[in-house]
Design a binder for these strands. Structure first.
Length: 274
DNA sequence: ACTATGCCCTGGGTGC
DNA sequence: TGCACCCAGGGCATAG
């Protein structure tokens, strides 16, 4: 599941391969009717053909391919999507949903087992991500901002960490990791966290995202970087999918439960309810 | 305004 | 070996 560190790794991989390149042809394969949100598959193919990619940006988990006609091609990988640069001749991945051929004879493949990934082609990129707040690695995501967003809320703090309006880019892996680092129980009513704990949680979010980015992301299942390789961070996580194993801080067995409708991993000793 | 729930989708894993 | 069932979850819609 690509979250901020994974999408940023892909972005950095693709910048030198894609910037300044012109799209010669796009093919959305049979069964990809839901991929292009703003256009039909045939329209999307036609609109993208001939466009040059000027810049590649990112906001939260969205990749932003800024085109020479002023529009932005907004790509979201959801849980199982990947965008991998290959030769034109490389055989299709088992779950290839679309291919993008470039003017240097290479191609990009959009692979997505569960078909949840989306493409938008828009004049204003905000239209493609209306519920996104500050990117979690931007200065707009500050301790003060987080404090204000959590104040008086009774929802579990984990649910709010997953809310892209509060911290765009945080997903299930890094929410669990940040809560462990900050020693906060995931089901704590957000408004009950004092300023010191909120500050600790904010720092923990940055820490886990940056550590994973340094490892080129986590490959728990389908995530691949822009060249098709796995990330390295999944072997260094503290709690995510480590239920039944010892907490590396205190030795207590990590538990798995359900919070905000998501699988949630935590240390019952380090992260006592407060 | 906030919170909870269900939907989308499909392969992999489990239990019988 | 085969089959039915359940699980994973980001973003969004909807209900309460």
């Amino acid at each position: 599941m690509p979250e901020l560190p994974e999408v940023e790794t892909i972005r950095r991989d693709l910048v030198p391969l894609l910037r300044g390149r012109t799209v010669t042809r796009v093919r959305i394969h049979e069964g990809g009717e839901r991929l292009a949100v703003t256009h039909s598959p045939r329209e999307m193919e036609a609109e993208l053909a001939g466009r040059r990619v000027e810049e590649i940006g990112r906001h939260g988990k969205y990749l932003l391919l800024r085109l020479d006609d002023g529009r932005t091609w907004v790509v979201h990988l959801r849980m199982t999507g990947s965008l991998v640069h290959t030769s034109a001749e490389a055989p299709a991945h088992r779950f290839e949903r679309a291919r993008i051929d470039l003017d240097d004879g290479t191609s990009l493949r959009f692979n997505d087992l569960r078909k949840f990934g989306t493409w938008h082609l828009v004049e204003d990129e905000h239209d493609a991500m209306p519920l996104s707040g500050p990117d979690a690695l931007s200065s707009d995501f500050s301790p003060r901002w987080l404090q204000a967003r959590l104040k008086d809320r009774v929802a579990p703090v984990k649910a709010l960490l997953l809310d892209q309006r509060i911290a765009a880019g945080v997903g299930n892996i890094y929410a669990d990791e940040a809560l462990w680092i900050a020693k906060v129980h995931p089901a704590t009513a957000a408004g009950r966290l004092g300023p010191a704990k909120v500050k600790r949680l904010h720092a923990a979010v940055l820490q886990t995202l940056e550590e994973s980015l340094g490892d080129r992301g986590s490959s728990f299942s389908d995530y691949r970087d822009g060249l098709g390789a796995e990330g390295l961070h999944h072997v260094r996580v503290h709690v995510f999918r480590r239920e039944g194993q010892a907490c590396e801080r205190c030795g207590t067995i990590i538990e798995k439960t359900r919070v905000a409708g998501r699988g949630t991993h935590f240390c019952p000793r380090c992260q006592r309810p407060s």
